[in-house]
Design a protein around this nucleic acid. Structure first.
Length: 550
DNA sequence: ATACGGACTTAGTACTTATACT
DNA sequence: AGTATAAGTACTAAGTCCGTAT
């Protein structure tokens, strides 16, 4: 048992801070030598997440740089020199001019009203209507700047890269209980216009610049308190060992807390959604299973040749449409009929159900079970089952990977992880198709050649014609293999055009299932997980054997 | 008993880099 | 070598869940 020298939470407002130079003493190591965190003792009791936390605080976005002379904003056709604050907000809009957002009325109105708040009294007197504002010069300036950046020489690009790396090294790591851990997001979010998804009522509102005075720092009591930028101070410095965040601030648009947290590779981490009640008018209108309304389902006594089918159609998280027709048991169907009875389309379908009561019920069934766990578990079981059903030991690696992707896709479809069909999809599909056509032709030619060679060998019977025949045989085999691979690629592509595989792979599926599958079928794990993913799942790579069962 | 908000976790999109093709 | 496409990363909005205040 470890002696704990400090209470779990400790906090102080810091009107002035100790001026200790230098950053955290990186390289402090714990006395016990443990190579991997997953081999360490399980977490301490009482919700304490760490005993040592030391870091540099967030990196702040540099201050606004005014537009150069000659880049002008026009109102009603006349050039207007804006005050610094108003100009900055104008550039946020100007940058987005060719984005769909700026065509939406809600976005325009929110932007304009927030922009006016940043204007001086004189500016407010002049600038009264958005449709008289001309941001095109501002827009062009930023387009040119991006182009110039892209056209930079190799050396200049290299230099920028090195600077970014230096920043990463300086601010991107912390010391957590003697381990140097990567921070997930060490930069404060830059100011800009809020980009809510779906029909978000707050889209276009001004998201303010974060100042050190907004930021609360969390670190261990005996560590070096990070230095705020010169001339500034932190809102607060505290030592709360029951939470994992390093810094936090309140964001002004939704009034929610934003955190600086660790990278998912660090030790502190490791189907319908539940659907909470949301404040009406504050966010886009989306639902989950508890907040479904009568208008979101249709009941079919019979559909697609199956009895008792429920048709779902609603917008879920990120305003992604969920559409599905599910056959259910008779009892379920009849209950739904009761729930729909005498209700308008906008009424709650399950008016006596909340996420709390649902999770309470699931908790009673199994300790720690929540709707979310159910979704995750369902996903992992589906993957395992699909892998078992689809993989054939005698297949080549390419075919096995196709099977894996199919299994992965089944999970993504189950969880409704969608993406927009890529813009270039049709084009690249077309080139793939013509490649296949060409390959088919080649195969046919090679077959004819082989036939000829065989006849030739039969009539001549010498060793030269024999080796020629063998050569033709090998060529045909190679071409056929290439064709198989291409058509597999095409299938994979077509089936996956609207499905986002990454989300389930990264967040839902127990990586040990995939690792075990790779080991069992001799597929290199790099074909399934890229470098970042292998880092995140290092523990699974280490511990899952080929016989692992979820 | 419910509302609220803090602390994570999940997720799509925008941007960057690597790889494949011409 | 240069460009098109794919893969990977960064970013941050939008969920879930739980504990505490009302």
């Amino acid at each position: 048992m470890q002696h704990v020298p400090f209470p779990d939470r400790w906090t102080t407002r810091a009107p002035s801070h100790p001026c200790s130079p230098g950053g955290p003493h990186l390289g402090v190591s714990s006395p016990t030598v443990v190579l991997f965190w997953w081999e360490e003792e399980k977490e301490s009791p009482g919700g304490v997440k760490w005993t040592q936390l030391e870091h540099r605080g967030p990196w702040f976005v540099p201050p606004y740089e005014p537009l150069p002379e000659g880049v002008c904003f026009y109102y009603d056709g006349k050039p207007v020199k804006l005050s610094l604050a108003a100009e900055e907000v104008a550039t946020f809009y100007g940058k987005m001019l060719d984005h769909e957002y700026t065509t939406k009325e809600v976005f325009q109105n929110n932007f304009f009203s927030d922009w006016r708040k940043e204007m001086t009294a004189e500016e407010r007197k002049v600038i009264k209507h958005l449709d008289k504002c001309d941001f095109t010069e501002i827009h062009r300036y930023f387009v040119d700047r991006t182009a110039a950046r892209k056209a930079l020489s190799k050396e200049e690009k290299q230099k920028l890269k090195e600077e970014a790396e230096k920043l990463q090294q300086e601010f991107g790591y912390c010391i957590l209980d003697g381990h140097r851990e990567k921070i997930g997001n060490f930069k404060t979010e830059p100011p800009g216009l809020f980009r809510g998804r779906g029909d978000h009522p707050k889209m276009g509102m001004l998201k303010r610049r974060v100042l050190p005075e907004d930021v609360t720092i969390n670190c261990s009591r005996d560590s070096k308190v990070p230095e705020p930028p010169v001339g500034h101070r932190w809102k607060e410095v505290r030592c709360d060992r029951t939470v994992t965040w390093l810094a936090a601030w309140t964001e002004n648009v939704q009034n929610s807390i934003k955190y600086i947290m660790l990278n998912p590779s660090s030790k502190l981490k490791l189907a319908l959604r539940a659907g909470h009640e949301k404040e009406e008018g504050e966010t886009a209108d989306t639902v989950g299973c508890c907040s479904l309304r009568v208008e979101h389902i249709r009941l079919h006594p019979e559909a697609d040749g199956r009895p008792y089918v429920v048709e779902f159609d609603f917008l879920g998280k990120d305003s992604i449409r969920y559409y599905n027709r599910v056959p259910v048991e008779k009892a379920v169907y009849e209950n739904l009929q009761l729930f729909v009875e005498n209700k308008g389309p906008g009424a709650e379908l399950f008016d006596r159900l909340t996420t709390a009561s649902l999770n309470k019920h699931l908790q009673d069934l199994m300790d720690g079970l929540t709707a979310k766990v159910f979704r995750t578990c369902n996903a992992s079981l589906t993957l395992q089952g699909q892998l078992r059903a689809l993989t054939r030991a005698e297949d080549g690696v390419a075919a096995k990977i196709l099977s894996y992707n199919r299994a992965n896709r089944a999970v993504a479809v189950l969880c409704n992880h969608q993406r927009a069909t890529p813009k270039t999809f049709e084009k690249s599909m077309q080139t793939l198709r013509s490649k296949i056509e060409a390959k088919v032709k080649q195969v046919a030619e090679a077959k004819a050649e082989l036939k000829k060679a065989r006849a030739d060998h039969r009539s001549r019977g010498d060793s030269r014609s024999k080796s020629f025949l063998e050569k033709r045989g090998r060529l045909l085999e190679k071409l056929e293999e290439q064709l198989r691979r291409l058509s597999m690629q095409a299938t994979d592509k077509e089936e996956g055009k609207q499905v986002a595989l990454g989300t389930s792979k990264l967040n839902y599926l127990d990586p040990r299932i995939s690792v075990a599958w790779c080991k069992r079928f001799g597929v290199p794990v790099e074909k399934i997980y890229n470098k970042t993913q292998r880092e995140k799942f290092a523990w699974a790579l280490d511990m899952a054997g080929k016989d692992f069962e979820f």
